[in-house]
Every structure is written in structure tokens, then in C-alpha cells.
Design a protein around this nucleic acid. Structure first.
Lengths: 343, 343
DNA sequence: CTGTTAGCGCCTTCAA
DNA sequence: TTGAAGGCGCTAACAG
């Protein structure tokens, strides 16, 4: 293909050579005034800077990466960017990474393992210096790809800290306990739970925390009161409908995430019942929306900001040769709003 | 800095040379079996592929970019990834770009011009091949940076198609007209509007469309019925409170976006009124949440998918030398749900 | 069909 | 304090 007919007027090439030419120095000097200004005479440095300014020159990252072996890119893999939980995480992660001089390659896999494979491949090709896998699941053989290249990884809940692997473990039990205590304190005994997809580790963890918590309060966990959702609104809606059909329906229900809770509230309303009078509902995550549902949702907060900070921090720490902790904990806490009341 | 103490066991370098060595061919042949398989003997190709497989080799994108001059990265700048409108856009954009072999560098500016500048700079450094600026605003001097480097750009609503610039113009009037017609048909005459921040061009466009539409129906537009929000929930809430305090409050109100409408519904409820019986509400955008509010929100749909397709398409089209349209239109249409009823 | 040879833009010894 | 030279991993002529 001939690129000859491209507009060739004023197509100055913004390379280090051009800068050098203008400043009447060697490219080495230009490179140095950019990377190690201390090693260059202030006067020449000024000339160089002027030339850089004139040309609005920026070094080519690719050339830089090639020679330095460092891409200054971090990968962030999330399961569904459409779930309000993630944009906040992405935002936070980006903030922090950017501040450290890293760019972020985000990838939303949509719970699809083929896409996950694709993402991983793209990240490998871009030579990401670290990957945060915030999907609560990960194919071993993909992990290996990164490990083989000594790329630091950080996972959410999926716990096998190792050579290059950090892990963030969310203390689901803490928040769930607070929620159950709150409910029990309100006089509830028949407490239901709508889980997430059971192949998701974090969903299992949430469910497990619920079962243990309920039993700690001397309430025999009743299998019929635990139904499966999908961490989406529709799943919550369906699940709640099933719960509502029970001969003895629960007086309070915990959701595995807020989206599920939103669906549940809708189901309750559609059944002609009202939250919390007829049934109390507690969510999980505390996405921004929780504050604006009708009624505002009592939920367990899992700070995205903190998650982002720890994930990004783990990666950047993993880049240095220094030893560092491999496991990070995150607490969760109940936020009481108006979707719960006495039984 | 000495990287000597890094674990050096089995740190095979996954370069094209290593593949060549294993397959007992030259690096050129490896390159060819990757890029132009037709030019290489099937038998050797097989050997090479085997070697690639063994090493799990992927070409280094940076080296590739350096020599080809093409980064295969597209930039996507949004104003607030936390607004549910954007994740869907990002998702769609990513899908399409990925399918075309492009990676996406996403940046959320948070309506902050300093961050915008930073984003632009990062994208420049990464040598993005095109930029979609979906913020409905853009600093001229930043535009110039891309233009100078012949990087195709595509904007949303900000309309100055030119050399490397495409523009997507959303037909706000269409959907707004449908909404007003719907309301008028329901007998509403006092129709209010809660706008977005007025420095946002798309917010101005929405507001303008409303005023014109209302007048087309012979309703004198009443300044008191038009109040300003901020395209967020809280802004909608405040705005609606102001509207509610009016001596003669509107019987129906349009919102500049769905988030605003959510806030408005909350305000109405807090005032002890009910939607739509006491007041009808219409949103704009049709984010997924609209379906799950209480009541489900009547709103004007602006397809993110379509937006993503056009934006991405414009960029990729701009990459080829072929002439192409510079302006893309997008229709908007009313989706009637349950937040509107007869006056 | 395959290999040899130049760079792409930049950073980094090594000499001056 | 500066410059010259080599090479990062890869693609693209140009020869065999």
C-alpha cells in the first residue's frame, strides 16, 4: 500500500532527532534532558526544552518500552463493567495507576471465558507489567501465562498467593454478621438469602458467610430459604418471586449484591407487598444506587476505593524486588438505611 | 539498578529469535508465518507454529508498533465512567474495537479539564490511532495536538467535522418531540424540564430541543418551569424540590438524563406525592436502570450500542485513505413505561 | 520459499 | 557535560 498521497504538507516527524536538530545537540542529550536532567548543562537543557516545546514533542512510548523492557501498562480485568460495582473500581484503579505513571488496559469479560482468554492475550502482547483480575475466578492455565513471564498478579478472593501472586481477601463474614445481627435484633427469625451464580467464588463466599452467620445465631439454616440469583436485577427478581411463593415466606432476605436486591425489591412491590413493612431487604456492595432506591437500601459496604488501592498497590509493590505482603484484607460493614425494619 | 537477583531459573526470553532457534529457521520466516502465512512452506510453517505453541510466544506489540508505525490502540475519553450511560458505551466500543484488532485506552475525565489534558497526553504518547471524545466538550488546543499528528477524532455533538474530525450528532429533538407529544396527548400542559450542567453542549442541546418542542405544541415556555440539574441524582433531587415549591407546579417534567429523573422521582416521593399520579416524569438515555426504578421510567432511548458502533466505525474509517462521511446521525425514541399517566 | 540486512525511536554503556 | 555506537524485538525490502 502506498501512503504517498497522504497530506504531506508540514508533516514534521516528532522524533527525538528532530528535537536534537533544532537544539543543535545530539539525541543523547535530548534523551538525557528528559530522563536525567541533572546530567545536562542547564543552558543546553533550556535549549532542548524549548525545542521540545516548539514541536510539542512526546517520546514514543513504544520505542521506550522496547528498549527499557517496561511498558508502564497495568491490566485490569473485570467481569462486567456494566455492573455499577465495577466502574467505581475502574475509576479508582485508574486514578492511582495514572498517578504512578501507569496506563491501564481495562477489559470486561462479560463472564465469558473466551473473552477472558482474548483479554489475557492482548495484555500479554502489550506486555502489561501487572494484572489485576477482579472477577473472582481465573483459569489456571491463564495464570501460568503471566507467571511464566513474571508478571505480578492480584486476585480477588481467589486465594493462592505465591511467587508473583497477591490476593485480596474480602471479609464477607464481617459485614454479613453485622447484617444478620441487625436483622435478628429487629426480631427476624426466618431470614432468606439470594445468592449469586454459584460458580463464582466470591458468590460462594458470600453465601457461606451467610449460612455460618445464621447458624451462629442459633437459627437452623433452611435450604428453601436460600435461592440462587445471578448478581443481576432480573435474577434477584426471579429469586424473590420463588421466595414469595413459599408456604412460609421469610420476613427478611439478604442479597448477594445490590443489583440482586434491586430486583428483589421490585418483586416484592409487584406482589403488592411493601419493603420493609412486609419484608426487610439487605443488599451487598453499597453501590451508589443503593442510596437512591425506594426505599434506600440497607446494605453491606465493600469499598471500591479501598479495593482499587490495594489491588494497584499490590501490583506496583510486586514490581519492586523488595519483599512484601502477599495477602491484603478488606473489611465490610453494614450501612443501615430504610429497607429494614422490625419483623 | 541491578536486576541480577531476579529469579533467573528458566527465564527463557520469549522473542522471535528463540522461536526461530527452536524451529531452525530465520526470524524472518517466523515473522512471515505469523503475518503472511501464504508466503511460507506449509511444512516449515508447521514447525514454526509448533515452536510458537511450545513457548507460548506472542509478538511484542511495542516492537511491532515501532516498526510499523501503528499502535493498534484507540483512545476513548468519557466524562464520568460512574454514570451508567458510559459503561455500556465503553463495553460496546471495546467489543467492536477488539473485533477489529484494536485495543482501547479508556479515560474518565470526571469533568476535570486537568485530567482531560493528562489523558490526551497519555494517548498521544501511546500513539493512539484514533480518539473518541464522548464528553460533549473539547478544548481546541487539545484537538490541535491530535490534528497535528493526523489522528482521526470523533466527537459527540460538538460539531466541527473537518480534516480528521468526524462528528456524531444525536437527534435529541426527535425523542424529545415524541416525549412532549406523549405528555400533551395525556393532557399535560404545564410541563417542566430539569436540565444538565449548562456548560455541557449536549445538555444545552437537550434543553434547546425541549423548549422548541414545547413551543411547537403551542405551549409558551415558562422559564420557572426550567431548572438546572447536574446530570446526577442529587441534582435531579434538588431541582425537583424547587419545582415542587412553585405556586403552580408542573404536572409533568422531563429530565435531561435518567440519573436526574431518578433523583426527581425520589424528591416527589419524599414530598409525599406519587409518580405518575401526581406528577409524570420522563427521563433521557434509557440506561438499564430505567427499567427497574419504581415505577419503571418512561424515557427517551439513546442507543449506546449504536453510539459505540458509529464512533468506532468513524475512527476506523478515518484510518483508511478512502473518503467517507464525516457526520453520523443517531435517532432517539421514546420508550413508554410507567412513570407517565394522564394529567 | 527462505535468509540477510536495515532500520523504526529511544536509552545506555563507553569514550572523549 | 557531551557524543558515538549498539541494540531492544520486529517487519520489510532485497537477494538467493
Amino acid at each position: 500500500m502506498s501512503g504517498a498521497q497522504l497530506s504531506d504538507h508540514t508533516v514534521t516527524k516528532h522524533t527525538i532527532h528532530e528535537v536534537a536538530r533544532r537544539a543543535k545537540v545530539s539525541i543523547t542529550t535530548v534523551s538525557r534532558t528528559i530522563n536525567t536532567p541533572s546530567l545536562v548543562d542547564p543552558a543546553t537543557a533550556k535549549r532542548v526544552s524549548a525545542a521540545i516545546e516548539e514541536l510539542k514533542y512526546y517520546p514514543d512510548t513504544h520505542a521506550r518500552s522496547l528498549v527499557s523492557g517496561r511498558s508502564r501498562i497495568l491490566g485490569l480485568i473485570v467481569s462486567d463493567i456494566t455492573n455499577p460495582f465495577f466502574p467505581e473500581l475502574v475509576q479508582g484503579f485508574e486514578d492511582i495507576a495514572t498517578r504512578q505513571g501507569y496506563d491501564v488496559l481495562v477489559s470486561s469479560t462479560n463472564y465469558d471465558s473466551a473473552r477472558m482468554t482474548l483479554s489475557v492475550r492482548r495484555m500479554l502482547e502489550r506486555k502489561v507489567e501487572g494484572v489485576a483480575v477482579m472477577t473472582s475466578e481465573m483459569d489456571d492455565h491463564l495464570i501460568e501465562q503471566f507467571a511464566r513471564r513474571s508478571v505480578p498478579m492480584v486476585f480477588l478472593d481467589v486465594g493462592t498467593p505465591g511467587e508473583h501472586i497477591s490476593n485480596i481477601v474480602v471479609d464477607y463474614a464481617m459485614g454479613v454478621n453485622e447484617a444478620v445481627a441487625h436483622l435478628v435484633g429487629l426480631g427476624h427469625r426466618r431470614i432468606g438469602f439470594v445468592s449469586g451464580p454459584q460458580d463464582l467464588l466470591s458468590a460462594q463466599a458470600r453465601r457461606g458467610a451467610f449460612v455460618r452467620s445464621i447458624e451462629a445465631y442459633g437459627i437452623a439454616s433452611d435450604g428453601r430459604l436460600i435461592v440462587q440469583g445471578d448478581h443481576k436485577v432480573t435474577g434477584g427478581l426471579d429469586a424473590m418471586n420463588r421466595l414469595l411463593k413459599l408456604p412460609e415466606r421469610p420476613t427478611a432476605v439478604l442479597a448477594s449484591n445490590d443489583l440482586t436486591a434491586v430486583g428483589m425489591m421490585r418483586a416484592v412491590r409487584l406482589a403488592g407487598l411493601v419493603v420493609p413493612r412486609d419484608i426487610s431487604i439487605v443488599g451487598f456492595d453499597d453501590i451508589w444506587l443503593a442510596e437512591f432506591t425506594e426505599p434506600p437500601l440497607t446494605t453491606v459496604r465493600l469499598s471500591r476505593r479501598e479495593l482499587a488501592e490495594k489491588a494497584c498497590g499490590a501490583l506496583i509493590a510486586g514490581l519492586s524486588a523488595a519483599p512484601r505482603p502477599r495477602e491484603y484484607g478488606i473489611e465490610t460493614h453494614l450501612v443501615i438505611r430504610e429497607s429494614t425494619c422490625p419483623a
